[in-house]
């Protein structure tokens, strides 16, 4: 139909039943997609896995959105906004898949706005704040390299929905990684000052890298079933991409100990990190992030206007 103005498109007559508090006109991103569970796939495990990957995208997207109106130049601002939008789209698909997979019927909004901090399964690198633009670039470069390697493999998932979501996301992440890599080189191989900022950004990121490659019990089971990917397998590709780009940038990834979470114990993560993001154990930054992300939905539950 097309609308004459944005306000008309937002009006309730034009869009009855949608809650503007959560965005206008959002429909189920999997509308019409066959979301039935293929035989032999554990719905609970699949839902948990989709939450991990969906939360990574949702939380990092939110951090990127916080850069709007703070980026050094308009071109970088549009780039960061577009990357955030791609990730938000991936999050919507994955969170919706989670609600269908476990049979709970929870929506993307239920997951994004109505869970507590301990229920979020994102890796901690997605949630930390950035000291400056170089810090953000270090984080974007590491996260997009890792997620691209992950989603590239997930295109072969035994869950056709997850495979399809991965196939779409891979092309987006390739551009995110490319954008970040170009900035890593420009800053690293730039002036003394930009080089120092790039090195500082990598130093902030480095302690949170080990966590990206530690499989949880859910990931191990789903990898064995051909549904998910064991993140430990991503390390060689990740290291190779980092080595090529950092060599060009004439900076190094510092060799530092991993930032530990809570002691392993009964945790699914028995490696060097202990319980961390995938177990719902987050850094201090996460609470502040959620307080902002969920503020409207918490203050005015189910609001429409």
């Amino acid at each position: 139909m097309g609308f004459d103005t944005a306000y008309e498109a937002m009006s309730e007559e034009a869009d009855a039943g949608h809650r503007w508090a959560f965005g206008t006109g959002f429909t189920d991103p999997l509308a019409g997609v066959d979301t039935s569970l293929p035989a032999g796939i554990d719905g609970g495990d699949l839902a948990a896995y989709c939450l991990m990957l969906g939360d990574d995208a949702l939380v990092f997207s939110h951090r990127l959105q916080q850069w709007l109106a703070r980026a050094p130049e308009l071109e970088e601002e549009t780039a960061l906004a577009n990357i955030a939008l791609d990730l938000l789209g991936q999050a919507r698909l994955l969170l919706t898949r989670a609600g269908a997979a476990d049979g709970s019927g929870r929506t993307e909004d239920d997951y994004a706005f109505c869970r507590a901090e301990r229920e979020f399964r994102n890796v901690r690198l997605t949630e930390i704040t950035d000291d400056d633009f170089a810090g953000l670039i270090a984080r974007l470069f590491v996260l997009s390299t890792w997620r691209l390697a992950l989603l590239a493999r997930l295109r072969e998932s035994a869950d056709p929905v997850l495979a399809a979501v991965a196939a779409i996301g891979v092309r987006e992440l390739a551009y995110h990684r490319d954008y970040a890599a170009q900035w890593v080189v420009r800053l690293g191989d730039g002036t003394d000052y930009s080089r120092a900022r790039m090195a500082a950004g990598l130093e902030t990121v480095a302690p949170l890298v080990a966590e990206l490659f530690e499989p949880t019990a859910v990931e191990r089971r789903l990898a064995a079933a051909g549904v998910g990917v064991d993140p430990a397998q991503l390390r060689p590709e990740f290291d190779a991409v980092l080595a090529r780009v950092l060599a060009e940038a004439t900076v190094d990834m510092p060799d530092v100990p991993a930032l530990r979470g809570l002691p392993g114990g009964s945790s699914s993560q028995a490696g060097a990190v202990g319980q961390a993001g995938r177990d719902g154990v987050h850094t201090e930054a996460m609470g502040y992030l959620l307080a902002e992300l969920q503020s409207v939905a918490r203050a005015l539950p189910g609001a429409t206007w």
């Binding site: 493999r153 295109r155 891979v170 092309r171 390739a174 551009y175 490319d178 991409v241 090529r244 780009v245």
Partner: peptide
Amino acid sequence: RTTTADPVPLTL
């Protein structure tokens, strides 16, 4: 698949 590593190669 032949494009697992680099769907769009690094333009660097």
